[in-house]
Design a protein around this nucleic acid. Structure first.
Lengths: 243, 243
DNA sequence: GGTGTGCTTCCACGAGGCGGAAGCGGCCTT
DNA sequence: AAGGCCGCTTCCGCCTCGTGGAAGCACACC
């Protein structure tokens, strides 16, 4: 039995990247609530500013939620510190530059810059992705508690391309190499034409984020010129974070 | 009498830019709730991911709220479309480049790029500011419904510098000129050393955002070279927005 | 040992959350 | 024009569950 507050939060959960706009009936169905209950909860969230209703009765996430979310230290807080280093990396490379954090068993992308000619990537700011096979995900997983590593490697590992590593034993060796080298290279693990290098961002002895550059290429060599830049930028961010 | 949901939302409201981290007792005091009630609500929000509790019992906004906020079309949705144009403007100018929307009688800053040597500005991503005297605020107010304009001009207008225009009649003339010229110039209205030019971003016949460049200077002349670039970038964003 | 502060848990009570029913409006089909 | 369907809004009696005072724990300080 859900609490009243639990229902309210479930209404918020109904909005996703795939369904950013929902009507009253769609919310009621998605959350499994009677219409009057959904109606009341939507009215309360809209009055608060967390949702906005358009002229055709569609609800979308409102600025109040974004504003609150902007207070999250692991999102915009981290981003504000990282921004100058990401901008430098972006100007030097004109490729995809991404900043991500780990949330449970997934990567959450906090920031991304991409030039128009940069290779297309599947990730979006605010979006989630599997830890392996992304570069940032490999870094975040390599430095996660062993319980997280075990759980991720025990779960289903999805093959995105013919190159995607899905054998747990092989992935463990990859993670060990990531820790040894201080960076991860993801060679056509997510799409057939993208190679990335990612480096860890440290804070108070733990890895709190990962920074990466993603370029077009058909081997790890494509990203080799960027390795030192990414590592230097990640170290710069680490130094700039409060202890 | 507040609803249960109202109390939950009030707990979220307790977190601000000035107080991004709060203990249980601080939340209870801020919201006016007994400790067990605040405790229960904080537990519910933390379980959901909207808040995170640190080892010393401090609560901060969690990634779930940021992730939901990222779905707001008027925040990151707008930003994703605007980003390439802002990056171009940033690379050409290496000054402060800002994107803002109007929320009620205030400006809310959705995105900002700033080079290290750029003039210091008082605004922050996720932060709010008065409509006048900022450049983006003048644009947003000039194109707001007349009821909003009347309300803002009837209210207290704060003087930030000796140049700040606070006479309502004079401000109406400024707003008329903004509409005529298609851009606003804010000359040392917020700080003594910053001048900005802002242009409107249109969508379906209304102004939904404003884009600006802020430079160091002691007269409007400082920003004149940037006017056409800002207007062109704003038009580019407008064309890229869905109808 | 005593005091003060912050936090956690319990639980009797009644405030208010709940959702079925009824009704309204708009759109579509016949 | 009439009827049916769908989405939405409002009402209100019922009873679930949200509430907060009390009690207790942990820790720090004197």
């Amino acid at each position: 039995m859900r609490t009243a507050n639990g229902k309210l939060l479930a209404v918020l959960d109904a909005f996703t990247r795939d369904r950013p706009r929902l009507t009253l009936s769609e919310v009621a169905r998605a959350v499994g609530l009677p219409l009057p209950t959904a109606h009341r909860l939507l009215a309360e969230l809209t009055a608060w500013g967390g949702l906005e209703r358009d002229e055709d009765g569609g609800y979308r996430v409102g600025l109040r939620l974004w504003e609150l979310g902007a207070l999250a230290p692991r999102a915009l807080g981290l981003r504000e510190v990282a921004l100058p280093f990401m901008e430098d990396l972006y100007e030097v490379t004109h490729e995809n530059v991404q900043l991500a954090v780990r949330d449970g068993h997934e990567v959450l992308f906090v920031e991304r810059f991409a030039a128009r000619r940069a290779v297309t990537v599947l990730t979006q700011v605010g979006g989630r992705f599997a830890l392996p096979p992304t570069g940032v995900g490999l870094v975040l997983l390599a430095h996660a508690p062993t319980t997280v590593q075990d759980a991720v490697l025990a779960g289903p590992l999805e093959r995105y391309t013919r190159q995607t590593v899905v054998d747990p034993a092989q992935l463990r060796r990859v993670l060990a190499e990531v820790r040894r080298a201080g960076h991860a290279i993801s060679d056509r693990q997510v799409t057939d034409d993208a190679v990335s290098v990612a480096a860890p961002v440290w804070q108070a002895g733990t890895v709190v984020a990962a920074l990466s550059v993603v370029v077009r290429g058909d081997s790890a060599a494509a990203v080799r010129p960027n390795i030192s830049g990414v590592m230097a930028a990640a170290r710069g961010i680490s130094r700039s974070l409060p202890r």
